[in-house]
Computed example of a mutant assay.
Amino acid sequence: MNTTNRNKFNIETRGRLSAWSTRHKFSHRPLGYDYRGVETLQVKSEEWLSVAVAPYAYGFNYLRSQCAYDSAPGGSLVSVYHLTQMRDQLDQPEEVCTKIFVSRKNPRIPSVYWVWKSSDLQERESYDMLGIIYQGHPHLRRILMPESWVGWPLRKDYVVPNFYELQDAY
């Protein structure tokens, strides 16, 4: 494949945010588009905080959702951020999805609480269910499970205890 065709291919497969990030030297990997046509990018954990400021500056001022999942037993944990551009009188706001893959042995991702305050409870839930540590988060503690709970219930290698302590309802 010659250089012209290779450049044409890269431009066609990259979305607007990926092209903008490349021009401004923000490290990422384009993952294509989801079933709704939303551009998906992969970012390294250690670069996430500096890269997160770029979509915010580009106009993605609303964190629609943050979630996490276990990609496979023994595999990576993934933190997913869905960002939206909110403007006046915009019928279909532009969206982008960013994924950060981390090792399950040391799952650390910088928190974007200081960029999007709405990540507060969402990052806490990902921590509580999967054990991803969001560094710099001001309130990182369990939100759904009791503080004494051992393990991360949504990990695919989680062993469910064979007993549950009943709580006094009175």
Results as ranks from 00 to 15, higher is better:
residue 99 K to L: 12
residue 124 R to T: 08
residue 63 L to Y: 10
residue 110 P to F: 07
residue 55 P to K: 00
residue 126 S to W: 06
residue 41 L to W: 01
residue 52 A to Y: 10
residue 59 G to T: 03
residue 62 Y to P: 01
residue 82 H to V: 10
residue 12 E to V: 00
residue 9 F to S: 01
residue 107 P to A: 06
residue 79 S to F: 07
residue 125 E to H: 08
residue 32 G to A: 06
residue 52 A to K: 07
residue 66 Q to N: 14
residue 119 S to I: 02
residue 55 P to T: 01
residue 68 A to T: 13
residue 39 E to A: 01
residue 18 S to L: 01
residue 113 Y to H: 13
residue 51 V to G: 06
residue 72 A to M: 14
residue 31 L to P: 00
residue 23 R to K: 12
residue 120 D to C: 03
residue 79 S to W: 09
residue 105 K to G: 08
residue 116 W to F: 11
residue 52 A to G: 13
residue 99 K to H: 03
residue 18 S to I: 01
residue 122 Q to F: 08
residue 16 R to D: 11
residue 98 T to V: 15
residue 14 R to G: 15
residue 118 S to H: 08
residue 106 N to L: 07
residue 73 P to Q: 13
residue 81 Y to W: 13
residue 123 E to M: 11
residue 40 T to I: 10
residue 62 Y to A: 03
residue 53 V to I: 12
residue 63 L to D: 05
residue 98 T to W: 07
residue 74 G to A: 15
residue 83 L to K: 05
residue 32 G to Q: 01
residue 60 F to A: 06
residue 32 G to S: 05
residue 75 G to L: 03
residue 116 W to D: 08
residue 81 Y to S: 06
residue 93 P to T: 04
residue 50 S to I: 07
residue 43 V to K: 07
residue 91 D to S: 14
residue 28 H to S: 09
residue 117 K to P: 08
residue 32 G to T: 01
residue 86 M to H: 09
residue 61 N to A: 04
residue 32 G to L: 01
residue 33 Y to V: 04
residue 6 R to D: 10
residue 13 T to C: 10
